[in-house]
Amino acid sequence: MGGSMRRMVSFLVVCIVLGGASPALSEHARFSLPVEVADTLPEGVGQIGLFQPLRYGLTDSVELIAHPLLSLVAPAADFKVRWGQWGGWTVSSLSGVSFPTGLVSLLACEGTGCIYPQDAEIPFLIGFKSELLASFSMLEALRGTFRLGGKSAVALGDNTLPSVDLPLAYTRFAHLREHVALWAGLGLDGRIWGPLWFVLDVDGWWVSESDAQFALEQTGTVLWQISEGFALQAGWMLIWGEYPYGDEWRVLPLIDALWAFGPTD
């Protein structure tokens, strides 16, 4: 693959790692807010961003999540299933499987855009992801969500992939090295006023590495629904983590654009 194509793929991977972290639907707006919640998209309603995954309501209680572009080299799909609502609580589970070998092999090379070394031994990888979500309504336009999840992978063959030592990427790619990554999170989302919505979110990560295990991510975002089909997001992500090179704090500004389609309420 040529250098320019590889650089584009690397750029997409970076944006998807950051952008696909957790958007989900607020029951109070057509758009998904940047926090994974227990609610699912209604049947026939979908959302896609340039780098965020496609989300589509297969039924009122089953949502498909997939990256159309990345699936060309790393087929993957998540299914969120809403199990029910009890006393103001909504409970869902999210399960996914991925086959990232093609993408990893593409990124293990010599030259610009290669985030893995060319001499890394890359096995056939099957990734697994599971998450339990419980959302509860506190006020008319305010919702909280608890999340508990994990991911890992099975390798068929020798695996000498190194870690990707960057905040966000380190925790999200650890499973490719057959480590377990676990997370627990708490999110708060709701309406500020009119077309403005907010998210405050905190996630704690644990990775089964021997010397760099914990990370904390705190996100704050405002979504501005400009029209029925378009919204803008802006906010920040505060990250603290342990990495092979030491502890690090980092603050990242976040921006995003979202498009929605399908039947309206």
């Binding site: 090379c109 610009t112 855009g113 290669c114 060319q118 990707v164 030592d165």
Partner: peptide
């Protein structure tokens, strides 16, 4: 560099 996006060099 915090990360060299080339050759798998990293930090």
């Amino acid at each position: 560099a915090d990360f060299i996006p080339s050759d798998g060099l990293g930090r």
